[in-house]
Amino acid sequence: MRPPLLSISGLDLDFRTRSGTVKALEGIDLDLARGEILGIVGESGSGKSVLSFAIMGLLDGAADLRVANMTFGGMSLDAGTVAEMRGRELSMIFQSPRTALNPIRKIGRQIEDVLVRHGPVPRRKARAAAIAALAQVRIPDPERRYDAYPFELSGGMCQRVMIAMALACNPTMLIADEPTTGLDVTTQAVVMDLIRDIARDRQMSVMLITHDLALAGEYCDRVLVMHAGHIVETAGVADIAAGDLHHPYSQRLFAATPASSDSLDDLAAIPGTLPDLRGTLPACRYMGRCDRARPDCAEGPLPCHRPSADHTVLCRYPL
């Protein structure tokens, strides 16, 4: 097997705040193969976005990041190397594309800025390259759109511009942080299809961050389920689609995902809220919300079950 493109082991992240230290991520291990689309699923506050910021080196000063090992393409990924790779090897798109684009700069110029910065094209050819990048994300009439401002475009169009910008320099990995949140359903599908097609064409790895397990199941090769800063389950797409999930939280998440045949009554909300990540926490952070919990769930380390080769579950009493 070829070595993974991105490999992380033993990643811990704390935020120092006035009201105490927030243990945002703990014991994160993950591998991302070349060309693989990896979904990261969890509810708001589970640490999905923070994980992507940690990889991109975009954390603010209050963050305390400790990593046993983090490599990208065989190189160690730290503050220095990641700054060189951002936008070139490693790129990112965000949710709410309308606010994520500079509101007072023409979109074509914003793509040019990235191209010129990383230098794959000479400055005088930058305009043509920016238009080509717009065409590649299937924006109709790219010459005219070059001069548009973000507020003149729809949300879906803005997200395509974001994608064009992120992919302008042919990165080997793209982190997509809730790329379809705030877009209507048909636009969602268009944007996701676009990301998948480009990833297939270029052998680009994608880390898709979403709270939508169904979306992840449809577009990803593999899915990580996160809860309160832990990765609780890793499963291949076949297991996800079949609902063959073994962690109580993943199972709940699956039950909370609407299918077309469901009525509203079939949707089950997950009881409780995320635990307060300040102060001391039990080994299993889902314990307080779990109906299978027993006192020894608080004791670490939690055992890791492997129902199949690419399936891991971090739970003492899995389903």
Binding site: E84, R86, G87, R88, F94, A100, D113, V114, M162, A166
Partner: peptide, 11 residues
């Protein structure tokens, strides 16, 4: 958000 984007693009 747009400054975060600019940082993510390595500007």
């Amino acid at each position: 958000d747009y400054c975060r984007t600019a940082r993510a693009m390595g500007l």
